[in-house]
C-alpha cells in the first residue's frame, strides 16, 4: 500500500517538477521516505538533543561530578540551588551524574556496535563470498556461539578479565556480531546469484565494480537497519551488566549504574531511579523508532 502511495507521490513530484525530469536514485527515495516519517524524525531530534546535552549538560551545572554536598543529601529536584535533578544519597548532583552517565551509555552503545559491525560484516561477507565448505564451517561456529546465552558469555569475560570499561566495550561487541554476520552472509549469498550481477559479469564489469555498484548497496540497507537496532540493544546489555554490578565502575557512571543505585532507595528518593531510567527508556525508544523508520524507508516491500 505504502509502495503505491510512494509511487503516486513520486509521480506527483515528477509532474510538479514540470519538465525538469531527473531520475532519482533509490537512496534519494529512501531519504524522502524517511524524512516523511514524523515519529522517526522526531526521534532523530530528541536523540541529537540528548547527545548534545551529554556533552554540554555537566558544564551547565555549578557542581562537579564527584563533589559531595553534605548539606544536601538526597535533595529532591528543584530549581533553587541549581539542583535540577536533585542529589543522590551521598550528595552528588544528579544533573551532572545523569549527563555523564549519558555520555558513557551512548558511547558504549555506539562503540560496541562499531566492534560488532566490523567483525560481523567481515565475517559474514567472507563466509558468503567464499561459500561452500568454508561457509559451512564458519556459520557452524556462529551456531555454536548462538547456543550460548550471550549475557553468560559477557559475564564470564568481564569477571575473568576485570571490570575495565574498554573490556565491557569489547565483550559486548565480540558477542553481538553474530546476527550481523548472518544478515551480511545471507545478503551476500543471495546477491551473488542475482540476475543483475550475472548481467554485470556478462557485460564485462570488473569484480571490484560489481562489489561496489551491486553488492554493497544491496547489503548496506539491512545492515544500517540492524545497526540502529543494535545500538539500543547494546545500551541495554550494558545496563544489565551495571545492574548486576559488573559494568561500569566508579568514578565513571552510566545510566545502568545510576538505575542500579537508585533502585535501592526507590521508596524514599524515587528520582534517583526515575530520572536515569526515563532517559534510558526514551533513548531506546528513539533508536527503535529510527530503526523502524529506516526499515520502511530502505525496504518498502516490508510494509
Amino acid at each position: 500500500m505504502v509502495w503505491f502511495k510512494a509511487q503516486r507521490d513520486a509521480q506527483q513530484d515528477l509532474m510538479n517538477a514540470a519538465g525538469a525530469l531527473r531520475g532519482r536514485s533509490p537512496w534519494q527515495d529512501a531519504i524522502t521516505r524517511f524524512t516523511r516519517n514524523r515519529a522517526a524524525m522526531a526521534s532523530v531530534v530528541v536523540l541529537f538533543a540528548i547527545a548534545v546535552m551529554s556533552v554540554v549538560g555537566p558544564k551547565m551545572s555549578p557542581y562537579a561530578m564527584d563533589e559531595l554536598a553534605w548539606d544536601a543529601i538526597g535533595a529532591p529536584p528543584s530549581l533553587d540551588g541549581q539542583r535540577w535533578f536533585g542529589t543522590d544519597d551521598t550528595g552528588r548532583d544528579m544533573w551532572v551524574l545523569t549527563w555523564s552517565g549519558a555520555q558513557v551509555s551512548l558511547a558504549i552503545g555506539v562503540l560496541t556496535t562499531v566492534v560488532a559491525l566490523a567483525i560481523g560484516v567481515i565475517y559474514g561477507a567472507t563466509a558468503g563470498y567464499l561459500g561452500g565448505r568454508t561457509d559451512m564451517f564458519m556459520m557452524r561456529f556462529v551456531d555454536v556461539l548462538y547456543a550460548l546465552p550471550l549475557l553468560f558469555f559477557i559475564v564470564i569475560l568481564v569477571t575473568v578479565f576485570g571490570r575495565n570499561i574498554y573490556l565491557v566495550f569489547l565483550a559486548i561487541g565480540c558477542v553481538e556480531w553474530l546476527t550481523m554476520a548472518r544478515i551480511v552472509r545471507g545478503q551476500t549469498l543471495s546477491m551473488k546469484r542475482k540476475e543483475f550481477v550475472e548481467a554485470a559479469v556478462a557485460g564485462g564489469s570488473s569484480g571490484g565494480a560489481i562489489v561496489r555498484r551491486h553488492i554493497i548497496p544491496n547489503v548496506v540497507g539491512p545492515v544500517i537497519v540492524y545497526v540502529t537496532l543494535l545500538v539500543p540493544t547494546n545500551i541495554l546489555v550494558e545496563s544489565y551488566l551495571s545492574f548486576l554490578g559488573l559494568g561500569v565502575q566508579e568514578p565513571l557512571t552510566s545510566w545502568g549504574a545510576l538505575i542500579s543505585r537508585g533502585a535501592n532507595s526507590v521508596q524514599t528518593t524515587p528520582w534517583l531511579l526515575l530520572i536515569p531510567a526515563s532517559f534510558l527508556a526514551v533513548t531506546l525508544f528513539c533508536f527503535n523508532f529510527i530503526g523502524d523508520g529506516l526499515r520502511d524507508a530502505l525496504d518498502p516491500k516490508d510494509r
Binding site: 544489565y240 538505575i259 525508544f285 527503535n288 523508532f289 523502524d292
Partner: peptide, 10 residues
C-alpha cells in the same frame, strides 16, 4: 515500541 524500549529490570 514502548515495550521493546523498557528495560526489563526497570
Amino acid at each position: 515500541l514502548i515495550g521493546i524500549s523498557i528495560p526489563s529490570f526497570f
